[in-house]
């Protein structure tokens, strides 16, 4: 194994204590699905389904317990009149985007997990520890992006680990390393965000006005209370076209109001009971 191979493949020396993530620049994505294959081969994930969906070239449909990378295809050839022949620079008229777990800063799945199986690693990524998870499945509805899912065969929750084992060995995550056009870029989140802002202004100068960052604070695609997403995206259409929520919410914000209100109601009814008993006595 080449020591610190990530320096060769991504120019990044991986050290615990720093926060790492993905910047997915969809304007460079050619929809080749190398990320899907590299992820399955590294993590030994089984194939799940041989069915032609008719959703353009996307037969993977979505992320699941055995699919941790999913490339979405959205055909938008009939922009304006007739079919496009002159296109905005980089990717246009056929949107392709490699979707992945967002490794949110305030991760609802992590905050919901009652056993501590889901935890934040020393690389600031979110991982399901397979020796702890008892398959309660609370993380599944908690995730605002519908990423994590239970595997019905081994009864555990599974999702992208940002190649936690590879990071431990100084290796760049398999999908980022394989990506032929560097649409998926691995690195420190801070650096990636700088590079992303720079890329957006570059694209705006080239006339790609619809380019914006999704998952980076104070940008059109900011994700509110979730904070920044360690795996964030540069998109050129509204998030919903890629099946992403425009303004996802942080589930744990609702614990306080719900619990306090509920207990108040319970207390109120208990007092009423006491009053009634006292009155009848």
């Amino acid at each position: 194994m080449i020591p610190d191979e990530a320096e060769l493949t991504a120019g990044v020396k991986i050290e615990p204590g720093k926060s790492y993530g993905f910047f997915t620049d969809t304007t460079r994505c050619i929809g080749c699905k190398a990320c899907e294959v590299a992820c399955k081969e590294w993590n030994l994930l089984p194939a799940d389904g041989l069915h032609l969906t008719g959703m353009s070239y996307d037969n993977t449909v979505g992320l699941s317990a055995s699919t941790w990378r999913h490339v979405a295809f959205i055909e938008k050839i009939s922009d304006g009149d007739g079919r496009a022949t002159e296109m905005a620079p980089y990717q246009s008229n056929w949107l392709m985007m490699s979707d992945v777990c967002k490794h949110c800063h305030n991760a609802p799945c992590l905050e919901a997990c009652p056993t501590g199986a889901l935890f934040r690693t020393e690389f600031d990524t979110v991982v399901v520890q397979q020796d702890i998870c008892n398959g309660c499945g609370y993380c599944v509805p908690a995730c605002p992006f519908g990423v994590v899912e239970l595997n019905m065969i081994d009864g555990k929750a599974h999702k992208c680990t940002l190649c936690y084992d590879r990071l431990k060995g100084g290796l760049e995550p398999a999908c980022a390393k394989a990506c032929p056009t560097d649409s998926i870029q691995f690195g420190e989140v801070g650096e990636l965000q700088q590079r992303a802002h720079q890329r957006v202004s570059e694209l705006h100068e080239l006339g790609v006005d619809s380019a914006y960052l999704y998952g980076v604070p104070n940008s059109p695609g900011a994700t509110g209370d979730l904070g920044h997403l360690n795996a964030f995206f540069l998109l050129t259409a509204e998030p919903e076209a890629y099946n992403l929520p425009a303004a996802p919410s942080r589930a744990s914000n609702r614990v306080g109001p719900s619990l306090s209100f509920g207990l108040a109601a319970a207390a109120g009814l208990a007092l009423a009971a006491a009053a009634l008993f006292g009155w009848q006595k």
Binding site: G62, I74, P141, C143, G146, L150, A241
Partner: peptide, 14 residues
């Protein structure tokens, strides 16, 4: 809303 081929955007609980 123009969705992604009407595919679920979330995962339902079990």
């Amino acid at each position: 809303i123009t969705t992604y081929y009407d595919q679920p955007q979330l995962k339902k609980s079990h």
